[in-house]
Design a protein around this nucleic acid. Structure first.
Length: 466
RNA sequence: UCCUCAGUAGCUCAAUGGCAGAGCACUCGGCUGUUAACCGAGGGGUUACUGGUUCGAGUCCAGUCUGGGGAGCCA
C-alpha cells in the first residue's frame, strides 16, 4: 500500500501527468464541508504547504455518512481521480472513489479552521505543526539546516561533533545545567561537607555544553577549516522572545585566518543561506511575506545584493554620541552597546547588516585576540535589522603568553585550560571563528518574532512540558 | 531577575461595583460545487488561584501563579 501513495508535492510538480488518472493519497483533514449528497475535504499530507481538495459524493462512497461526519484533524486514505477543478481557489482536485479512515479526530480537537494566537498554539506544541504557519516554519527550519551544511561542505569544512556533556566549567559563555546521576536526596559529601562528585557517573562535576568553540578550535588546528552544528544549553533566567534554554548553534572555526577572513565567511554564509531558502522554499517564503512580515522578501533580497557594513566599536560609539537620539542608557566608550544602540546602528544608520568590530577587551571573552592598541580585541558582532545580534565571533588569541595573561587577569584557573593552552604550545596558528544562533537565523528569515515559535518543542525557564 | 500589561465558554473577545454575553468552534437538523461555505436550533462558565473591602466583586485592594511586551545576559 505505502509505495502506491503519491504526495501532494509530487502532484504539484507535474499535475498534467496525473490528470484523469487514479491517485492514492494519505493525509489529515484540514477542513471539511458537506452537503446532502456531496462534500469537500481540504487534505494536507505534510509534503508541502498546499492542501488538496478532495470531492466526495454519496453515490460513489459506500461510507459517505461516516466520511461526512469526520472532524478536522482526522487521518484518511483517499483513492480517486485527479481532475482539473471548476472552483477558483485550486487548480485541480481529486474526485474520491473510496476514502478509508485511518484515525478519527473527535469534536474536542483543539485546532479550529480559523486563526489561533501563537500563545495558545504554544500550549499545544504537539499539534501546532498541523497549522499553516508552523508547517511553513518547520519545513523552512529543515531546509535552512541543509543549506548551512551545504555551504560549509561545498567549501570543504569538516563537520565536527563536539561534546554535549562537558567536564569543565571553562567554556565561559554563561550559566550551565549540571549533569548528574547522584541521588539528589542522598548526596555523597566530602570531609568539607561539599558534594563529592568523584562518586558521580563521570567521576567529576559535569555540565551541558554552552558552546562547542573550544573543541572546534582543537579540530581547526588539525583540519584547518571546521564547523559544528548542534544543540547548546544555557541555564540563564532569560525571559525574552530571543532566548531559549536549549538552542542550536553553528560555529565555524578556521586556522590561518584573521578577523577579516572571519567576517568574509560570515557574510558569504548569510547571503548563501538566504539565497538558498528563497530559491528552495518559495511557497513558504511567500507565506511569511504575506502573513508574518510584509517587508520580509524585500529585506532579504536587499541583503543578498548589498555589501554588509563595517564599523569599529569606537566609531559606533562616536556615531551614537552625535546621533542626538535620547537613549535610555548613556553611550560611553568602554560600556557594552545596549539593544537600543545596536538597533539604532543597524536600523537607522546603515539600514542593513553591520559588523561591529574591535570591542574593548573588558567586555569580551578571554580567548579573543588582543589588538596592537592593547585596549581592544579582534571581535565582531553581526547586527541585523529586526533581530539584532545574530552572529558573534572573533580572531582567537594564539599567543600563549597573551592568553595566559588574560586568564590570570580574569582570575580563571589556568590548569583547567591545560589542553586549550597546549593548542598554542604545539603548532599554534592565528585562527578565527564565529557562532550563529540557528533559531535567530530562522527568525530573521521567516519574520517570526518569538524564538519559542521556531523550535519544535522549546525549552525556556519554567517551561519544558513537551 | 527587573519594569509593564493581561488572565471571563474549546478559541478570540465584551460586560458603569448590581441577571454571565457575542462571534467562531462543537452537537443536531437543512441544503446538488463548496472555499475560514451557508441557513436554523441546541449544549457549554469554580470569571487563573488564595485572602480581603462591600448589602452586593468578573470589576476595587493584597499576595501567588501563568502568559504577552520591554530590559538585562547573550546566540
Amino acid at each position: 500500500m505505502r509505495e502506491d501513495l503519491l504526495t501532494i508535492k509530487e502532484i504539484y510538480k507535474d499535475p498534467g501527468a496525473f490528470y484523469g488518472k487514479e491517485v492514492r493519497l494519505a493525509g489529515w483533514i484540514r477542513n471539511i464541508r458537506d452537503s446532502k449528497v456531496f462534500g469537500f475535504i481540504d487534505l494536507n499530507d505534510g509534503s508541502c504547504f498546499s492542501n488538496l481538495q478532495v470531492v466526495f459524493e454519496a453515490d460513489k462512497l459506500d461510507n459517505f455518512e461516516q466520511i461526512a461526519k469526520l472532524g478536522v484533524g482526522s487521518a484518511i486514505l483517499v483513492k480517486g481521480i485527479l481532475t482539473e477543478s471548476p472552483g477558483a481557489k485550486q487548480p485541480f482536485e481529486v474526485k474520491a472513489e473510496s476514502i478509508a479512515v485511518e484515525g478519527v479526530s473527535p469534536s474536542d480537537y483543539p485546532l479550529q479552521k480559523k486563526r489561533h494566537s501563537f500563545e495558545f498554539l504554544r500550549t499545544i506544541a504537539h499539534l501546532r505543526p498541523r497549522t499553516n504557519t508552523f508547517s511553513a516554519v518547520f519545513r523552512l527550519r529543515s531546509i535552512l539546516a541543509y543549506a548551512i551544511h551545504k555551504f560549509f561542505q561545498e567549501r570543504d569544512f569538516v563537520y565536527v561533533h563536539t561534546p554535549i556533556i562537558t567536564g569543565s566549567d571553562c567554556e565561559g559563555a554563561g550559566e550551565m545545567f549540571r549533569v548528574t546521576t547522584l541521588d539528589l536526596n542522598a548526596l555523597p559529601l566530602d570531609d568539607q561537607g561539599k558534594v563529592d562528585f568523584s562518586e558521580d557517573f563521570f567521576g567529576c562535576d559535569t555540565k551541558l555544553t554552552v558552546s562547542g568553540q573550544l573543541s572546534a578550535e582543537a579540530y581547526a588546528l588539525a583540519f584547518r577549516n571546521v564547523y559544528t552544528f548542534g544543540p547548546t544549553f544555557r541555564a540563564e533566567n532569560s525571559n525574552t522572545a530571543r532566548h531559549a534554554s536549549e538552542f542550536w548553534m553553528i560555529e565555524p572555526e578556521m586556522a590561518f585566518a584573521d578577523l577579516a577572513d572571519d567576517m568574509k565567511l560570515a557574510e558569504d554564509m548569510m547571503k548563501y543561506i538566504i539565497s538558498y531558502v528563497l530559491e528552495h522554499a518559495p511557497a513558504e517564503m511567500e507565506f511569511f511575506n504575506s502573513f508574518i512580515d510584509k517587508e520580509l522578501l524585500e529585506r532579504l533580497n536587499n541583503i543578498v545584493s548589498s555589501e554588509f557594513a563595517h564599523v569599529t566599536y569606537t566609531e559606533a560609539v562616536k556615531l551614537l554620541e552625535k546621533s542626538g537620539e535620547a537613549f535610555n542608557y548613556p553611550v560611553k566608550w568602554g560600556m557594552d552597546l545596549q539593544t537600543e544602540h545596536e538597533r539604532y546602528i543597524t536600523e537607522k544608520v546603515f539600514k542593513k547588516p553591520v559588523f561591529v568590530t574591535d570591542y574593548p577587551k573588558e567586555i569580551k571573552a578571554f580567548y579573543m585576540r588582543l589588538n596592537d592598541d592593547g585596549k581592544t580585541v579582534a571581535a565582531m558582532d553581526l547586527l541585523v535589522p529586526g533581530v539584532g545580534e545574530i552572529i558573534g565571533g572573533s580572531q582567537r588569541e594564539e599567543r600563549l603568553d597573551y592568553l595566559d595573561a588574560r586568564i590570570e587577569e580574569l582570575g580563571l584557573n589556568k590548569e583547567e585550560y591545560w589542553w586549550y593552552r597546549e593548542l598554542r604550545k604545539f603548532g599554534g596558528t592565528r585562527h578565527a571563528g564565529f557562532g550563529l544562533g540557528f533559531e535567530r537565523a530562522i527568525m530573521y528569515m521567516t519574520g517570526m518574532s518569538n524564538i519559542r515559535d521556531v523550535i519544535p518543542f522549546p525549552r525556556t525557564p519554567r517551561s519544558a512540558e513537551f
